[in-house]
Nucleic acid binder design. Structure first.
Length: 247
DNA sequence: GGTTATGTTATTTC
DNA sequence: AGAAATAACATAAC
């Protein structure tokens, strides 16, 4: 379900509850102190990459939707409820997700300069981190949440395509300006993805991910599980350049 | 029934 | 010890 932009969109949907106390908290999530939650006021909602952070005065709840996570706003789904929070004006229910209680200050745990959707995102830092992993394939490196938090498999494929860069390229062989472009493409695609969510426009904007034909060359796209992560790569051999190892 | 899918983390193995 | 492979979790669609 989630890449960074969808979590950012979820935050916007839930911001209406900020300032309200929890009326009821239920669910089966481990590590969540349910009896402690009622009457706590939701002070802020943050996101970090694919993580949703519900902030209360003395702690935070971290929700990660993982692969199959679902949520329902003012509705219920027919499966095990992990975490349900009822506020004065509505209810949010989370399913099939990872929930955690965080007592440490968030600034101590998160570095928002690595979050592609955060205003403080630092593209140069991301570039330097990539350069520190010269032997990795770019299709693996660009999924690393410690480098570009929020990027998932869809954004990966679209950003690589926009930069004419083959997913099996070796990081150390890619010219630096192209790597720089790739980082920038992750940011701009994520921002566009979020605005499509906000405007509720269909995902016609995906050019290669889960598609069959290259929109530029009209040749069939290749689909392969590449890299150590073995995630699906959709790419055009004709218009995405491969920078292979030179030994 | 098998495969695949927008993800991460704990455990095992080398 | 530490990197790397494997398992684990949860769910729906084809």
């Amino acid at each position: 379900m989630p890449e960074g932009p969808r979590i950012a969109f979820l935050k916007e949907q839930l911001d209406q509850f900020v300032g309200q106390p929890v009326v009821e908290a239920q669910g089966t999530a481990k590590n969540i102190p349910f009896p402690l939650l009622p009457e706590q006021t939701l002070t802020e909602i943050k996101t970090f990459g694919k993580e949703l952070l519900l902030c209360f005065p003395d702690f935070a709840l971290r929700i990660h939707l993982l692969f199959f996570g679902k949520y329902a706003l003012n509705a219920e789904l027919n499966r095990e409820l992990q975490l349900g929070l009822t506020f004065e004006s509505g209810t949010i229910n989370f399913y099939a997700c990872d929930c955690r209680y965080i007592s440490e200050p968030l600034e101590q745990l998160y570095d928002w300069t690595t979050d592609v959707l955060h205003p403080s995102f630092d593209p140069d830092k991301a570039l330097q981190k990539l350069l520190r992993q010269p032997k990795q394939l770019i299709c693996d490196a660009i999924l690393e949440q410690s480098i570009v938090a929020g990027v998932g498999n869809g954004i990966k494929n679209e950003a690589l395509f926009r930069c004419h860069l083959h997913p099996a390229s070796v990081v150390g062989e890619i010219p630096e300006p192209i790597l720089k472009n790739l980082v920038r493409a992750c940011v701009t695609f994520s921002q566009e993805y979020l605005s499509w969510k906000q405007e509720n426009t269909p995902t016609k904007n995906w050019q290669v991910y889960q598609r069959n034909t290259c929109p530029r060359d009209l040749v069939p796209l290749r689909k392969e599980k590449l890299g150590k992560t073995k995630r699906s790569c959709y790419f055009c051999e004709k218009c995405q350049e491969l920078y292979a190892a030179s030994f």
